[in-house]
Computed example of a mutant assay.
Amino acid sequence: MLSSDAVVVVTGGGRGIGRAVSMLAAGRGYKVCLSYVSDAGAAAKVVAAIETAGGAAVAVRCDVADEADVVALFEAADRLGTVTALVNNAGVVDLPARVSEMSAARLHRMMATNVVGSVLCAREAVRRMSTRSGGRGGAIVNVSSIAARLGGAGQFVDYAASKGAIDSFTVGLAREVAGEGIRVNAVAPGIIDTEIHASGGTPDKAAALGPTVPMRRAGTAEEIAGPVLWLLSDEAAYTTGAILDVSGGR
């Protein structure tokens, strides 16, 4: 059963999948500490919606690639209650490009946010959750992508590679902390209708590719949030190191 002071940290919690996770987590009884990097207005709307529904939430500006920002994010979460859950959702894409056209700056940004940021956030979560250091356990869910196995050829090989790293990190960390009361899993979404496609220069991607998915449509952010909350819940108590495909069969 969820304790009354249980806090979930949701990175990138102001929009898309992060917003859906934040809202559903609040509805399940979590206090929500969500991060955003640029859209303070969107994050504030999520906080307001949670509070209007009787929940507790706080939004913190945090570039997850910045260690000091990550430390400050978790310190804010500590003030809400006890961190027992982390959803590593923050991530970036870029404009479609072949590897031969990619700059070092693009690659560093991609890996710093999608990989280093997730590891830093997990580090802070483990420090708080681990029974080895006096914590009471918890769960981490990393947001990966089926791009990790599809490869993103001709468009987003760097993004796919960053998500492949997340898959490996999920399995490794899960095994590392399984005896310390912490479960670590991932969800791997397919084509989901969120704002992230616009930031990658393909705002119509979900509409264009949805019909090519075996289920004949793109998914919704809410259809990812449900599996995330299941992996955080006691119903998944014996599940760790899993990468859950949520791609409509793609």
Rank of each mutant, 00 (worst) to 15 (best):
S4T: 14
R15D: 06
R15G: 02
R19A: 14
L24R: 15
A26E: 09
R28A: 15
K31N: 07
K31Q: 15
V32C: 07
L34Y: 10
L34C: 10
E51W: 11
T52S: 08
A56E: 15
A65T: 00
D66R: 11
E67D: 10
L73Q: 06
R79G: 14
T82A: 14
V83G: 07
G91P: 09
G91Q: 04
V93S: 00
V93N: 02
L95D: 04
P96L: 07
A97F: 02
R98P: 02
M102Q: 12
A104G: 08
M111T: 12
A112T: 10
N114R: 13
N114L: 14
L120A: 07
A122P: 01
E124D: 00
A125W: 01
R127P: 01
R128V: 03
S130M: 04
G137V: 12
G138F: 04
G138C: 04
V143W: 01
S145F: 01
A147N: 06
G154L: 04
Q155A: 13
D158E: 13
S162V: 12
S168Q: 13
R175S: 05
A178H: 00
G179F: 00
E180I: 01
G181M: 02
V184I: 07
N185I: 08
P189E: 11
I191F: 06
T194L: 05
E195Q: 09
H197K: 03
S199Q: 15
A206C: 09
A208I: 15
V213M: 08
R216F: 06
A218V: 09
A221R: 09
E223C: 02
I224Q: 14
I224E: 14
W230T: 07
D234L: 01
T240F: 05
A242V: 11
D245T: 04
S247H: 04
R250F: 14
